[in-house]
Structure formats: structure tokens, C-alpha cells
Simulated assay, not measured.
Amino acid sequence: MKKIAVSHWITDVFYTVLGILFCGFALKSFLIPNSFFDGGVTGMSLLIHEIYHINIAYVIILLNIPFIIMGAFQVNNTFAIKTLVAVVGLGLCLLFIPYPQITSDKLLVSIFGGVFMGIGVGLAIRGGCALDGIEVLALYTGRRISFTVSEIILGINIIIFLIAAIDLGLPTALYSILTYYTASKTISFVIEGLEEYTGVTIISADSEEVKRRLVMELGRGITIYKGERGFLKESFDVSQPVDIVFTVITRLEVRRLRNLVHEIDPKAFVFTSTIKEAAGGVLKRRARH
């Protein structure tokens, strides 16, 4: 157990340090030299830095402290301590690492600044901490008002971008919105995983044959739910017990599975759902494209 705990700790530290380096690169090589912004606490820090010319490293640390304290109550003390260390690490990174400016092209800055920022924040979250405390604020506020976390974050970011538009011009604000959008999509990609699987649910009168061929031909693990089928409008009182089959496959296997099930039972009800990350069980490695 100790070896597992140490391994997890090393992994968390690795993700966090890598996240700090990526965020520092995004800020100093793309966003800060071109007066671009992001959302959340980072966006507030960039805005204050641009308007009042205060060192961005100090602003990021100071603005995050209230959210770190809030995180101790909303999440736990471990999260708060790890987040404090990560934010201070980001501040030191911005102070002492001489990142070069990569480009002045606004489109490249907005896209790749967002990508690298998203990678950094996503890796830090995978390491068990946060480099931006805005979600802690949204979580805290969401428990006291009727808005969702996403709506609160959106509202805060709208205010940031409106201030940027007034003080620094609409084009800069619009490019910054693109940066934020790119960063948020990249964060989701990093957090939810590089592997994307598809969950398939099959309801068929020939469930025994479906189960056999899924296991024997596709080599997939399956899970069975006990259910009932029927309940049609013209015969609502008529139903039969049925095994509902669930399995997880790669995207490249969806067509093959659909063909296999259709061959067994053309009337089978099959629906799929996206699974961003899966581990354990009987999973094949994702096929190479």
C-alpha cells in the first residue's frame, strides 16, 4: 500500500509540475506579450496586469488565495495545500523562467495560447490541484443560489471579457474569448482522457446469441442487466423478460458490432454513448488508426 501511495504521489507531482510549466509557457510566450486574456482567475490576473502593470506572478498568487481558502472548506485541506503549492510554483515559474515570445500573430496566439494553457490547467487537475480557483468559487456560490457551476463561471467570464472590451478594445476581447474557448476544450480533453471508447447497449430477443458472439468473436467483456421488453401501445400488458447487454468497444469496432447484432436480430434495439476514459475489465488497447 505504501508503494502504491508513493507511486500516486510521484504521478501527482509530475502532472502538477508539467502543468505549471505549460501554463507558464502559455502566459509568457503567447498571452502576456500580446495583451491577450483567458477566463477565470487567470483572466482577472492578466487584466489587472495589463491595466495597472503589476507583476503577473504576484497578482496570480494573491487573487488565488481567497479561492484556495474556500477550497479547503468546499473540497478538503489536501486539495487546498496542493493548490497553494501549485499556484506559488506558477508564480515562481513566471518570475524566473525566461520563456521566449513565440509569435505576434493574433490568431496563432489565441489558439495556441489557449491550447497550452488548457494542457497546463488540465494536467494540474489530473495532479489533484487547481491552477485557477474560479471553479471553487462557482462551486461555493452554486450551493447558495439557483445557478449551475457552469452558468456562474460563464457569468464571471462575461464580466471579464466586457471589461477587456471596454479598456483594451473589442478585437482583443474577441480574440481572448477564442483563447478561453480553446483552453476550456483542451482542459476537457486532458482531464477526460486521450482514449475514447463507446458504450453500447443492446436489447434483443436473441440476447443469448448476442452475448455468445460478443464474447467469442469480438473478445469483449459484457455486463447483463435484467429487464423486460414489450409494452407496445396496442399490447401494453404484454411483456417478456430480456437480458440487456452492455459492452465497451473502441470507435473503430462500432460498425462491426452493429453488423454482428443486425445479423443475429434485425429488430434489435442498439444505442451507443461516448465514454471518454475507461480502465480495468476486459478492454482491448485502442486500435491504431
Rank of each mutant, 00 (worst) to 15 (best):
M44S: 01
G71T: 08
A72Y: 13
A26Q: 02
P66Q: 08
P66T: 11
I68P: 02
G43S: 08
S29R: 15
G71A: 13
C23Y: 02
T78Q: 06
F79M: 09
V41C: 09
M44Y: 07
G71I: 07
C23W: 05
A26W: 00
N76E: 12
L63W: 11
F30E: 05
N55I: 01
F30T: 14
N55V: 06
F67E: 04
F67Q: 05
F22Q: 00
E50M: 12
V41T: 13
D38H: 12
T78S: 04
N76V: 12
N34A: 14
H53L: 01
F67N: 02
F30M: 12
N77Q: 03
Y52E: 10
F73N: 00
I32M: 13
I54W: 13
L46S: 08
I60E: 01
L31Q: 13
N76G: 11
G39M: 03
F79G: 10
H49C: 02
M70G: 10
F37E: 12
V41Q: 09
I48F: 12
L27C: 05
K28N: 14
G24S: 00
T78L: 00
I61R: 01
N76K: 09
A72V: 11
F25T: 14
I60M: 12
T42A: 06
I61C: 08
I48H: 07
I61Y: 09
T42I: 03
A72E: 11
F25R: 14
I48S: 08
P33C: 11
N76C: 07
F73T: 05
G71K: 12
F30C: 09
L31P: 15
C23F: 04
T78M: 05
I65Y: 05
V75R: 05
V59P: 03
V41P: 03
G71F: 04
T78I: 05
I68N: 04
G71R: 04
